[in-house]
Design a binder for these strands. Structure first.
Length: 799
RNA sequence: GGGCCCGUAGUCUAGCGGUAUGAUGCCCGCCUCACGCGCGGGUGGUCCCGGGUUCAAAUCCCGGCGGGCCCA
């Protein structure tokens, strides 16, 4: 190798390497058929903007490091990248961008607008990640492709056949703006200022007045009960009596129920169908009658206030109550209202026909399965289990939106008006709102008229089977039967445990009676320098390419790996990126140094210090391999940084430099070769261990050295014989080096200057006497004590 | 309102029963033939506060305060 290589790593080499990797076909999934297969269930990112932020990208870099490590362990890794493109956010974005409302535009056209917008983002998204050196196989078919949607639909049809899906009229949290039902995780809460209204009801049996406090007076016509807390002595006497509800005068029971808070308002609470989820729960529990007064657009649809929007109705009814002398008082109040996660519109609970997937009856089984998955780190298992325990409703999966997977149902409308759902046989991509029904559907509806369902699925219906898609379920290389579920790993953030992870588990259980994958790797969130989440609205989003352009991808990857422990949040920290850059330079220069010697063909007789550094490396390798195997990149990053820099470079290389050069023939040829052989052995092995984290500098050096890619090498377990060296000798030599350097420093000497004295060291260190003598340029190296102690422990003397 | 996590030198971070790890910053030296994006040496901490358990607490328990996340 030439000595004329620049002393600094040039980050432009990274872009050359990406081109080389691409031309070598490294980004394509390869299944040998002989090696074990491992699937990484890459999170398909949602393309609501053209670039992921740097925190998100860092987690993808982690996945890449794991993929690269596994490949070097002799495994065929399926590491796909495709986009999640279905769902509400893109629709909302299009509506905002063009100032339109989805349901007022021809559906075909609206869907096309969404698709085009997404296409614009995807190319740049992929290119940015590639610039980070990510080695995924890019699959252009995202969750909105016929290929993926076909799978979503077929798995749904399978569940339908098994009776796990039902359509029911059910009170459902509903967004009047988006005109869709929402599932539990899609509900958010927002503080809102409102009035708590104290309203007079009459007790039917006694004629006395009772006062009820409510923030939702417009729901009075839907009120079906009044409750008080069972321990509330003030109202015990009302138990079993009835209340007359203004203004329409319906008579409802007065019941004790623990959900009533005696401290809130008057302690008497009206229960309406449907004010909120608590109302819903009580209505179900007490089997109260259902009074539907709100329609899909959020308008009152019955009685005196019909046609008014919720807020208008509220104002009007308050006015009427006032006029009738039934409004006792109003208190200002700030409370939390449930809102739509996407558009923040306050939700209503209305009754619609929705499709539900059964989950409540399987809670115990799901918890059992959750205990069978391996969580890294383990503490996140409880988050999933707690969530399963808290579920109260089946999963509503139908949505009245547009850019999503169509529900594959046709409705057979009989002459008598009866509607029968018919599902096709599966295996195709069905668009019932647009396409004619397939023959098996027409055959099943000879006596009726067919209507295609216009609804779509909740997007988690798509992403909850990503682990099947990633395993090539729809692809030519389909390894699903081979890897499911033991060789699939799900990497994801803790923020979507209750959604992506939970629904994946549910779907796997319903489809296969099993877990979806054996391993769950939970990463923390990437935060800004101050430790706050990055949000466009906050203006603290750090671009994912700027630091790469400044410091190079290897440096940024080093930050990604080293910034935080697995499962903990990690902050953006330019210092660590800079440290990564310096480490790249260090690695580069170590490589230049080692490669300046011809590698000995045969293994020479090693000296004790050579054995000692190998023993040290043995230990580092064991720990690093074990950590990598647990999908941790933080430990390896720190272990390798410290070993390569502060053991290998600072001490071993310094100690054996004279022996390796052997300019004046002080050492025997065997001794010299031992140094060079060991330099190579340590360098080779540590480069391989580092390659998953810093794939660029390690590959460039490896190609110069051996004319092939480091990424084709195998990381074997370290040879057992390495462990026979004496690692404590190495620690002792480090202390001696430091002591001498400190001494020279205090004497104002250059470290390269000769010291006209003998060095006295512990007996053990004499095994490296010659190396010590020439490294420190002392007269002699002797055992015992000299005239002057130069360390804290009394080990090192000179004189 | 509930749950979970976190609070260690200017900054970031490890330790999680025996008074503290590393990085960075700062100061001082060194052109040592792989590297000045380097090498060496030093400086810097009531381990958020209060109480408890213990021979002994950053470390365990309780209560605050501050920050974050998830959920209602």
């Amino acid at each position: 190798m030439s000595q004329r290589l620049p002393t600094r790593w040039d980050i432009r080499w990274e872009e050359e390497l990406i081109k080389i990797w691409d031309s070598e076909g490294r980004f394509k999934t390869k299944i040998s058929g002989t090696r074990p297969v491992f699937v990484i269930d890459t999170p398909p990112p949602y393309l609501s903007s053209n670039r992921p932020h740097i925190g998100q990208t860092a987690s993808y870099a982690h996945f890449d490091m794991i993929a690269r490590f596994m490949r070097m362990r002799g495994v065929d890794v399926v590491f796909p990248f495709y986009a999640d493109r279905n769902g509400l956010p893109i629709e909302v974005q299009i509506e905002k961008k063009y100032g339109i409302v989805a349901h007022e535009v021809p559906r075909e056209k609206f869907v096309q607008m969404c698709k085009e917008e997404l296409d614009k983002y995807e190319g740049e998204f992929v290119a940015s990640l590639r610039r980070w050196g990510l080695s995924f196989d890019y699959w252009p078919n995202g969750t909105d492709s016929p290929e993926y949607r076909r799978m979503t639909q077929s798995t749904f049809i399978e569940l339908w056949r098994r009776g796990l899906v039902y359509e029911a009229e059910r009170p459902t949290p509903w967004c009047p703006r988006c005109r869709t039902a929402l599932a539990e995780p899609e509900i958010e809460y927002k503080e809102e200022e409102t009035y708590l209204n104290y309203i007079k009801f009459k007790v039917k049996e006694t004629g006395e007045d009772i006062i009820i406090a409510t923030t939702r007076p417009e729901l009075l016509p839907a009120t079906v009960a009044v409750i008080f807390h069972p321990d509330d002595q003030r109202y015990k006497r009302l138990e079993g009596l009835h209340a007359v509800v203004p203004p329409e005068g319906q008579v409802v029971p007065i019941l004790p129920h623990r959900a009533a808070n005696p401290q809130y308002g008057t302690g008497l609470v009206m229960i309406s169908t449907f004010g909120d989820t608590r109302d819903l729960m009580i209505v179900n529990e007490l089997k109260l009658p259902i009074r539907i007064i709100v329609d899909e657009a959020g308008r009152i649809n019955t009685g005196k206030y019909a046609g008014l929007a919720i807020r208008e109705a509220r104002a009007k009814i308050i006015e009427d109550l006032k006029a009738a002398g039934l409004l006792v008082k109003q208190e200002r109040l700030v409370h939390n209202v449930p809102v739509c996660w996407r558009c923040k519109t306050p939700l209503e609970i209305i009754v619609t026909r929705e499709l539900f997937i059964k989950q409540i009856e399987f809670k115990d089984k799901l918890i059992e399965l959750a205990n069978k998955m391996e969580f890294k780190p383990p503490e996140y298992r409880q988050v999933l289990i707690d969530w399963i325990k808290s579920l109260e409703l089946d999963w509503p999966v139908s949505r009245r939106r547009y850019y999503a997977t169509e529900i594959p149902i046709w409705w057979c409308v009989k002459p008598n008006g009866e509607r029968m759902p018919i599902v096709p046989k599966g295996g195709e991509y069905y668009v019932p709102w647009r396409d004619p029904p397939p023959p098996e559907v027409t055959d099943a509806c000879k006596d009726g008229r067919l209507e295609g369902d216009t609804r779509v699925f909740d997007t988690w219906m798509d992403s909850s089977i990503s682990w099947m898609y990633a395993s090539g379920y729809t692809k030519e290389f389909n390894v699903f039967p081979k890897v499911y579920p033991h060789s699939i790993m799900r990497p994801q953030g803790y923020d979507i445990i209750r959604t992506w992870l939970y629904y994946s588990l549910l779907r796997a259980y319903l489809l296969h009676g099993n877990i979806p994958f054996r391993y769950v790797r939970i990463n923390g969130m990437g935060l800004d320098e101050k430790g706050e989440a990055m949000h466009k609205s906050k203006g603290n989003v750090i671009d994912l390419l700027a630091p790469v352009e400044k410091y190079g991808a290897d440096s940024v990857r080093f930050w990604a790996a080293a910034a935080g422990r697995l499962g903990s949040d990690y902050r953006y920290n330019e210092n660590i990126i800079r440290e990564g850059k310096e480490f790249v330079t260090k690695v580069w220069n170590i490589s230049r140094f080692v490669l300046s010697f011809p590698e000995p063909a045969e293994r020479p007789q090693l000296m004790p210090i050579d054995m000692a550094i190998l023993a040290k490396l043995y230990d580092v390798a064991k720990k690093a391999i074990s950590a990598y195997s647990d999908f941790d990149v933080y430990e390896p990053a720190h272990l390798l940084y410290n070993f390569i820099w502060h053991d290998f470079a600072d001490h071993y290389i310094e100690l054996v430099k004279s022996r390796a050069y052997n300019r004046d023939g002080t050492f025997t040829e065997e001794e010299q070769k031992a140094a060079v052989w060991t330099l190579y052995a340590v360098w080779r092995y540590s480069m391989k261990l580092l390659a998953p984290i810093m794939p660029f500098v390690t590959d460039k050096a490896w190609r110069l050295a051996f004319g092939k890619s480091i990424h084709d090498e195998t990381i074997e377990d370290p040879p057992e014989e390495w462990s026979r060296g004496d690692a404590s000798l190495f620690e002792l030599l480090k202390k001696i080096n430091s002591a001498v350097w400190r001494y020279k420093n205090r004497q104002g000497m250059s470290l390269a200057a000769s010291l006209d004295k003998a060095l006295y060291v512990p007996e053990a260190a004499l095994q490296a006497a010659k190396d010590l003598k020439y490294t420190h340029k002392v007269l002699d190296v002797r055992p015992g004590h000299g005239a002057e102690q130069i360390d804290d422990e009394g080990l090192v003397w000179i004189g």
